[in-house]
């Protein structure tokens, strides 16, 4: 009996611990993994984020009739792991602290980024985005830059041809 009274005393001294959320906003600490935010102006369409995204929240389609690569992000599938932000080479994705994401409209949960594709100078097929190429070209030495706007397949063929010409391969 005495112990029981003790707990009542204890409970009174602690008071109410339940928070009045959502009437009072809930705080989350620095480093909380919430909504990933995309900066469309920085995205180069390299597809790295889509490759690591476990639940396929980020997907890519190349639309050759419009000549664009479309990044689609669907919040409904996102597990907020933040891996996409880890691997993005241009820091186009940042993980925010935002977590109140419910919406009555499915469209609010979707984000689309369109990036222009570029054609291979040799075979004429779309093979990567314009921005991606620009970024890569910026990092290359002169001489190699000529080969940049040629798709990997044609590049392989060209390389092979030149090898044969040099007599490297018989």
């Amino acid at each position: 009996m005495r112990k029981r009274l003790q707990l009542i005393k204890e409970a009174l001294s602690i008071g109410v611990v339940t928070r009045k959320y959502p009437f009072i906003p809930a705080e989350v600490p620095e480093g909380f993994r919430g909504l990933p935010q995309f900066d469309a102006s920085k995205c180069i369409g390299c597809t790295a984020c889509g490759n690591v995204c476990t639940p396929n929240a980020i997907t890519f389609v190349d639309d050759t009739s419009l000549g664009i690569r479309r990044l689609e992000y669907y919040l409904g599938r996102c597990i907020f792991c933040g891996r996409c932000a880890d691997v993005c080479p241009t820091s186009a994705i940042t993980i925010t602290k935002e977590f109140e994401l419910a919406s009555l409209n499915d469209r609010d949960l979707r984000l689309v980024i369109d990036i222009k594709l570029i054609k291979c100078q040799s075979c004429g097929r779309y093979f990567t985005t314009f921005r991606h190429l620009n970024t890569v070209a910026g990092k290359l030495q002169e001489g190699v830059v000529d080969l940049v706007n040629i798709c990997p397949e044609c590049r392989r063929k060209l390389a092979l041809d030149s090898l044969i010409k040099l007599g490297g391969l018989k």
């Binding site: 480093g31 909380f32 993994r33 597990i79 907020f80 792991c81 933040g82």
Partner: peptide
Amino acid sequence: TGNRKTYG
């Protein structure tokens, strides 16, 4: 870890 439960 950045989350209450799924530490990731």
